[in-house]
Design a protein around this nucleic acid. Structure first.
Length: 504
RNA sequence: GGCGCCGUAGCCAAAUUGGCAAGGCAGCGGAUUGCAAAUCCGCGAUUUGUCGGUUCAAGUCCGACCGGCGCCUCCA
């Protein structure tokens, strides 16, 4: 089995071969922390969380770096020259870094809820000013940059490969684009490495060119180089950043070092809301905090993984509601397996498990599941198909469970199911659904008869009383108990082996 | 003007180098149930927006057309 990834640089699928196996360096463009994270962030970071988790599953030792942009991004034309974070800070009358770090914390809280692994290093742009100055000096020294009155620009004509990532040629750009109009630039596509600060700027640092702050793209070049080296394996980010952000990163990094920058460029596609572009100016962007009020973050994760990372994701409440049902089915299957294993390990007389080996068909199904799962993931991280194989396992698991319960109810066997079977199934759910896809949790809150708490005992008591009522064919009472418990969120389910309950 | 994507069952959404059209949701039939719920079993596209072309073979490649979208501007 071989992992193949779609490389934006070549616009082709390529076999993934790290520069220094088993080590993999991965850099993903992080958030600009001047507001709360939205669905677009979720799509992007879930995508790269998936990439990271699968590489880890394959045995690679991945270093995952994701920057925090807290300086340097300009706002739109109307606010030319003003820093995005600083502008927002002025509105709120606080220090820009207080604002930025507040949103950074909130960002990670949201990402945690989506069950993302945190990056190993999350460097802040504001903490790497010396590195950015050094890179600018290097580019000035080898003739790829020039200074005009306290501003330093990258000279795109000095880098013949400019455009190789976004597959654009400078000549073709003339019409329709909006290069910043600045008379002092030699070429309209030249971009700022260092910007001179206007008097009112709070965020400014001394540099060889006077007080100022770094340009938009420089941080990623400086920080990726610092933590992953001049050449590294994977650079990820959102599709909209290919040009100019990533193109400029390539130019300044390769011009400075004279070496290739990232080997594989991975780009996730964008989010639309009810079929329309989600944009700040359109007023239809959905923050994660708002989405979490309506939907379980884990369902949001799953609905995003049900589409491919290179396909657009359309956020619609109908799609998420439909996904909720499937998610619940998957999770309740895992819970059922684990509850049974726990009952067994606690020596409960209600256990249906025996000590025999797992039957051939179980071993076969588990191994097939792994195979199809990996085949999907090897194909440029095709999570939708991978998820499909997990649903297959859930169905299989429920089926052997069902027939075991029937055997037991018929008195054919008190322990009709092999413990080893459930152990294998649970391991597979945990590995593929948990470690790799991140939608199966290690632990779920106690919600079964096994919970030794007062309310559990009370529920057990009511269930017992209902059993009596049913035996006496007093269905009015038994249905009343079931309905009233249902209203409290306790679902009763009568099976061949008796009544079980769970909390919604 | 440049670059690119999508159009697959009622809805969402997959399909390695072209080789029998995944999966989820909803729906229908059956098993199970006192009735439910949950679960299991079975069923749904002779066909992938339209029209042509290449091929033994096309959702997949080529061309045209229709319809939708994105990027090129801070944006994930």
């Amino acid at each position: 089995m071989t992992l193949r990834v779609y490389n934006s640089l070549s616009r082709e699928m390529e076999v993934f071969e790290p520069l220094n196996p088993p080590y993999v360096g991965m850099y993903v463009c992080g958030p600009t922390v001047y507001g709360d994270a939205h669905i677009g962030h979720a799509k992007s970071y879930i995508s790269f969380d998936l990439v990271y988790r699968y590489l880890r599953f394959l045995g690679y030792k991945v270093t995952y770096v994701q920057n925090i942009t807290d300086v340097g991004h300009l706002t739109d034309d109307a606010d030319q020259g003003e820093d995005k974070v600083e502008k927002r800070a002025k509105l709120e009358k606080i220090h820009p870094l207080q604002l930025a770090q507040g949103f950074e914390r909130r960002f990670f809280e949201d990402m945690d809820k989506l069950n993302l692994e945190r990056p190993h290093i999350a460097p802040r742009a504001s903490g790497h000013i010396p590195e950015q100055i050094a890179l600018t000096e290097k580019l000035l020294a080898n003739g790829h940059a020039y200074e005009v009155g306290g501003n330093v620009y990258f000279d795109v004509t000095s880098f013949p490969e400019y455009g190789k990532l976004s597959h654009r040629r400078l000549e073709e750009q003339a019409a329709g684009t909006r290069f910043e109009v600045r008379g002092e630039k030699r070429h309209p596509a030249d971009f700022a490495l260092w910007k001179k600060a206007e008097a009112g700027h709070i965020l400014q640092w001394p540099s060889p060119w006077g007080l100022g702050y770094p340009g938009w793209h420089l941080e990623c070049s400086a920080m990726s180089q610092k933590y992953l080296g001049e050449t590294f394996d994977i650079h990820g980010g959102g599709l909209e950043n290919i040009f100019p952000h990533h193109e400029d990163e390539v130019a300044q990094s390769e011009a400075a070092c004279g070496k290739p920058f990232a080997k594989y460029w991975l780009h996730n596609n964008m989010v639309t809301v009810n079929g329309q572009k989600m944009g700040k100016s359109l007023g239809n962007f959905v923050t994660l905090r708002a989405a979490f009020e309506k939907f379980d973050p884990m369902v949001l994760r799953m609905v995003i993984l049900q589409g491919h990372y290179r396909s657009p994701f359309d956020y619609s409440e109908g799609a998420i509601e439909a996904c909720t049902v499937g998610y619940d089915r998957l999770v309740s299957t895992v819970k059922k397996v684990r509850n049974e294993l726990r009952k067994d390990s606690e020596g409960s007389p209600a256990s249906i498990l025996n000590d025999g080996p797992a039957p051939e068909d179980v071993m076969e199904y588990v191994s097939q599941t792994k195979k199809s799962f990996c085949a999907a993931m090897d194909d440029d991280f095709a999570s939708p198909a991978a998820l499909g194989s997990l649903f297959g396992l859930a169905q299989f698991s429920n089926a052997i469970f069902g027939s075991a319960m029937t055997l037991r109810a018929g008195g054919k066997s008190r322990t009709p199911l092999s413990r080893e079977s459930l152990v294998k199934i649970d391991e597979t759910f945990s590995l593929l659904g948990g470690d790799v896809l991140g939608i199966v949790k290690d632990d779920y809150e106690e919600s079964s008869n096994a919970a030794p708490r007062l309310d559990s005992k009370l529920i057990g008591m009511l269930v017992g009383m209902r059993e009596q009522a049913r035996k006496n064919k007093n269905f009015a009472i038994s249905d009343q108990i079931r309905d009233e418990l249902d209203e409290l969120g306790v679902k009763l389910e009568d099976g061949p082996g008796g009544t079980t309950w769970r909390v919604e």
